[in-house]
Simulated scan of single mutants.
Amino acid sequence: MSKERAGLLLWLAGVNLFISAFTFGGGYVVVPMIRKYFVERRNLFTEEELMEMAAGAQSAPGAIAVNLSALAGYRAAGRCGLAVSAIAAVTPPVVILTLISFYYSAFIANAAAAAALRGMQAAAAALIADFVIDLSRSVIRERSPLLTLMMPAVFIAGFFLKIGAGTILAACALTALLRIAGRAGRAAV
């Protein structure tokens, strides 16, 4: 293995350990961090590729954060990058949950721990809001009336009509497939 490849794998391990250890709130919180380190700092792939990976990570079984870290690792360094990234992404939560389970009764009664968890919720909300704004910008750049109208429709369906996320996701996927099929049909004519 070359020094450059070994250095990239070591970097993948470190950055994924860091991202996993310091991001709370799920997969959508990980996206801005992966953008920062993989796209902006290292130029390992583009913003569009990141959005494609995020969509794939969301639709695959398992935790979005781990799936996205694994996909980013694969895009950066192939199978070894996938393995290193996935292991690094699951290590901090496993260690943290193991420690918490051993000291659960002391942890749950600790006011400082409860305050820290509330602070993490606020930080996670801010990162998710940042991701939604960036994702909205990329959808608007597509200049597709259908995709632009889909954003408020999804919000209304979920927030006001209380339609489940799975149903909304299935409806959006079907809409996108019909859009693609329509374009393919027009291109064939």
Rank of each mutant, 00 (worst) to 15 (best):
M53T: 01
I19S: 03
R42K: 15
I108Y: 08
E47L: 08
N110Q: 00
V66W: 05
F38S: 04
L71Q: 06
N16S: 15
F24A: 15
A63K: 04
R42N: 14
V95G: 06
G73Q: 02
L82S: 13
A77C: 12
A115C: 00
A63W: 02
R75I: 01
E47F: 05
V30P: 06
V39I: 11
G14I: 08
G62T: 10
N110H: 05
A113T: 04
V66Q: 09
I96P: 08
G78F: 11
A21W: 07
Y74F: 15
A72T: 10
T46F: 12
A115Q: 10
N110E: 04
I96N: 09
G26N: 13
A63G: 12
C80Q: 10
F107I: 05
A83Q: 05
A55Q: 03
T23D: 10
P93K: 06
R41H: 08
A109P: 02
A63E: 08
G56L: 15
V94R: 07
N43K: 14
A88F: 01
S69Q: 03
G14A: 15
A89Q: 03
N43E: 13
L44H: 07
G27R: 03
G25W: 05
V94E: 04
R35F: 14
E49K: 13
R118V: 07
F24T: 14
V94P: 02
G14W: 12
R35W: 14
Y103K: 09
G119D: 04
V29I: 12
Y104I: 00
S105G: 01
R35I: 04
